[in-house]
């Protein structure tokens, strides 16, 4: 290939990528940063400053919601790991042959349905006229209808459910590569199950645990559907505040500042998770 032709190819291949990244990623975020730094000082008058960020600090509802969202996302991540780990272990180490394939597929399949459909399923199960309430009444455990929707537990159930796949798949992948003979050797040398888990399994599975946790945390933090539908009006999720500022109150300056705070927290956690586990963004994000 001659030099000028190679150069032309390079330019032609670069163009779509550059257009995509500048017009849809870089400039939008720069614009959002710009808007978040504008304060409304009068009708149609704006000044530059950190006013929108100071409002966030001054208003307890705002930063409480922020902290609450972050905290509940951490909890959802931990629960997803605890619930998913034994199942990932079962698929990677105990199940064999066709059973293993079937179980893995059974883990994947529910997540081909959209998050909306899955959340709707939980609404049918948990609401006052729902399946659980009816079963409890039928069994004589409850006198009247029981409302299980619109509380933090419902939000948590939905978040854990909706993120499960993104935890189980990386865990299965890393556990799969752990050599069984290491575990047998440790056992023959007298290690207890707990010691084996702590000294051999967890160190080996660390990259999988890290990428699972990063993705689950990020998805919970940025989730809108699940908290709004399962938590109702009292869900107090930060994405809900952003939506309100943008769409309901039309206060874009404040909404953009909230957006940046959420983006900042999300990025900080991703970065910290990658540093702690010594991974690159690419390896951690390799999805099923």
């Amino acid at each position: 290939m001659s030099r000028p032709a190679g150069r032309l190819t390079l330019i032609l291949l670069l163009a779509p990528l550059l257009l995509w990244l500048t017009l849809l990623i870089v400039i939008p975020h720069a614009a959002m940063l710009f808007v978040s730094l504008r304060e409304r000082v009068g009708v149609g008058e704006y000044a530059f400053g950190l006013g929108n960020y100071l409002t966030f600090l001054a208003e307890p509802l705002y930063w409480n919601t922020f902290v609450r969202t972050a905290w509940m996302s951490v909890l959802a991540t931990a629960l997803t790991l605890l619930i998913g780990f034994p199942v990932a272990w079962h698929i990677a180490k105990i199940a064999r042959g066709r059973a293993r394939q079937a179980l893995f597929l059974a883990c994947l399949a529910p997540f081909w349905a959209s998050e909306l459909v899955r959340t709707y399923g939980w609404m049918i199960l948990l609401r006052e006229s729902g399946v659980f309430s009816a079963v409890l009444q039928w069994a004589g455990l409850a006198e009247g209808p029981v409302e299980m929707l619109y509380n933090d537990v419902a939000i948590m159930v939905g978040l854990v459910y909706t993120s499960m796949l993104f935890m189980v798949v990386p865990l299965v992948t890393t556990l799969d590569s752990l050599d069984d003979s290491l575990i047998e050797a440790a056992y023959d040398l007298g290690a207890s199950g707990w010691t084996i888990l702590r000294e051999i399994v967890i160190p080996h599975a660390r990259p999988g645990i890290a990428s699972g946790c990063i993705v689950v945390f990020m998805m919970s933090l940025g989730n809108y559907l699940t908290p709004i539908l399962l938590g109702g009006k009292s869900s107090l999720w930060f994405t809900g505040l952003i939506y309100d500022q943008f769409i309901t109150r039309f206060n874009w300056e404040q909404g953009a500042a909230f957006g940046f705070l959420l983006l900042g927290l999300s990025s900080a956690i991703v970065w910290a998770g990658l540093r702690l586990s010594g991974q690159s963004l690419r390896s951690a994000m390799a999805r099923p």
Binding site: L21, H29, V35, I242, A256
Partner: peptide, 22 residues
């Protein structure tokens, strides 16, 4: 390359509002 991967870690809501603002 890293910039190309970034959309994976930007929450969907934020991606939406940033494009809306632009």
């Amino acid at each position: 390359y890293v910039l190309m991967l970034l959309p994976l870690v930007i929450p969907g809501i934020i991606l939406g509002i940033s494009i809306l603002v632009e």
